[in-house]
């Protein structure tokens, strides 16, 4: 979408709490076991998992609520028995359909074409390294790297836009710039983010894989040296700006049909099978997550570096139970970004 129109639509969605983007977790099942994954159990409760008709009802309601972008995710969304039906139904309703997938099921051109014909516009894959040993170690599945590379090219050949998520951890940091260069050569958008989140039940085990302060400093410095526009710069927002877009311009639905403010905040507003979207979206719980503003955050001594913070209330709630308080890791990342920013400023002043 052209920038001005997108900005106009985005602004409208935030101001009027129109959930422009909805993420649908079709299943918790997955055929990988990523060491850093936030999902606690890779299985669904058969008594609660949604039927296709339930999903169709939810899609219709999201459509009426103003959703344009649907993200099918999981677990691994292609493992859902309703995956293709939901993809086709969503396209027929007019949604922009995308998936976040590990690519393991996309292993021949017929499958990729079926995705394209089903209306898939964007496939986002998590690629951790160009080194198969590192990628496979992170996914705990031998051969997953080779299969993912195949899926990337099959989707592209089928005419589906492909983008990549590359998490920054201690395990893959060394090769992260090789990954950037490869993605650039292939014309693929790559996003690298150091935010490894705790498991949904608060288990901190995945956070052990987070990049250290030293690795983060090296990463942000090196990235800024390579690309001028990659220098971390502070985002200045007024204190009455919203902390995030949860329960305003975006929402999420779990495999049991519960409406969530976003993927990260796991406090459900209620069941979309039992109640209407409009009722749940206007509930006290939704309003509670919609309202937080920057001035409501407990920033303490970190006020000065807030502009560098990627504070996520959901991650914070999960990690230490206080959504309006920065996590220690968010502070570390912000401190590193601020340090690198100042270093480059000094250099340019000389």
């Amino acid at each position: 979408m052209n920038k001005d129109l997108f900005e106009k639509v985005r602004k409208k969605s935030v101001e009027q709490a129109i959930p422009l983007q909805a993420s649908l977790e079709l299943t918790y099942r997955c055929n990988e076991r990523c060491t850093h994954c936030y999902i606690e159990k890779f299985q669904d409760d058969p008594a609660r998992i949604l039927e296709l008709d339930d999903w169709k009802k939810i899609l219709k309601e999201l459509r009426s609520a103003g959703t344009l972008y649907l993200v099918l995710m999981g677990g691994e969304p292609t493992l859902s028995s309703h995956f293709f039906s939901i993809l086709n139904y969503g396209s027929d309703l007019g949604f922009y359909m995308s998936i976040i997938s590990n690519g393991l099921k996309i292993q021949d051109i017929e499958y990729a074409r079926k995705l394209k014909e089903g209306g898939l516009r964007l496939a986002t894959f998590s690629l951790y390294s160009l080194d198969p040993l590192i990628h496979d170690k992170m996914t705990s599945v031998k051969g997953s790297h080779a299969k993912l590379m195949k899926a990337i090219f099959l989707c592209r050949d089928a005419g589906i836009k492909v983008s990549l998520n590359g998490l920054l951890t201690e395990a893959n940091a060394k090769g992260i710039f090789d990954l950037y260069e490869w993605a650039d050569t292939e014309g693929l958008e790559l996003k690298v983010d150091p935010n490894v989140t705790a498991k949904l039940n608060g288990d901190m085990q995945p956070t052990l894989y987070r990049a250290s302060r030293e690795t983060l400093t090296w990463f942000y410095r090196e990235r800024a040296k390579r690309w001028e526009n990659a220098l971390p710069t502070p985002v200045v927002e007024p204190s009455n700006a919203y902390v995030c877009n949860a329960a305003k311009g975006k929402c999420a639905v779990n495999p049991y049909g519960e409406l969530l403010p976003c993927i990260e905040i796991r406090e459900a507003f209620g069941s979309l099978v039992e109640k209407s979207f409009a009722e749940l979206w206007a509930s006290d719980k939704a309003i509670k997550w919609r309202e937080p503003k920057i001035k409501d955050l407990s920033l303490g001594e970190h006020q000065a570096i807030y502009g560098f913070c990627d504070h996520c209330p959901g991650m914070a709630k999960n990690e230490h139970g206080k959504p309006m308080q920065l996590t220690d890791y968010t502070k570390v990342v912000a401190e590193v970004k601020s340090q690198v920013f100042r270093e480059f400023q000094r250099e340019s002043d000389l």
Partner: peptide, 17 residues
């Protein structure tokens, strides 16, 4: 169906992906 769309506030946005 190749063009996703949505009507917001009586105005419609149509995307050519």
């Amino acid at each position: 169906r190749n063009f996703p769309w949505q009507t917001l506030d009586s105005e419609t946005v149509i995307i050519d992906p």
